[in-house]
């Protein structure tokens, strides 16, 4: 089960839930599961960058998750 840390600023829409364990092998399944659980922020979750074990993917695509992956959803960042 990957441990997913929700964006701290969105906990007003998650009933205060900050961390949740999700059983998913890849990022798309994980995002889908989160969206199912928290429909209010489903759209926003799909637009976020995903940090998997410290590596931030602006576009997470189909990145694989380990069973004990630590996943953070963070806003996307533009560079100059």
């Amino acid at each position: 089960m990957a441990t997913v840390h929700l964006p701290s600023g969105l906990t007003q829409y998650t009933g205060g839930v900050e961390t949740i364990d999700i059983d998913a092998a890849r990022v798309p399944e994980l995002i889908a599961a989160l969206g199912h659980r928290f429909p209010q922020i489903a759209e926003q979750l799909g637009e976020m960058a995903v940090a998997i074990d410290g590596e931030i993917y602006q576009d997470p695509g189909y990145q694989l998750l380990r069973a004990d992956s630590d996943v953070h959803l963070v806003p996307r960042i533009a560079g100059g």
Partner: peptide, 14 residues
Amino acid sequence: NAEGDKAPYGPKYG
């Protein structure tokens, strides 16, 4: 902050 500390935006620093 150093390696292993948690960044304010979430993940741990390498």
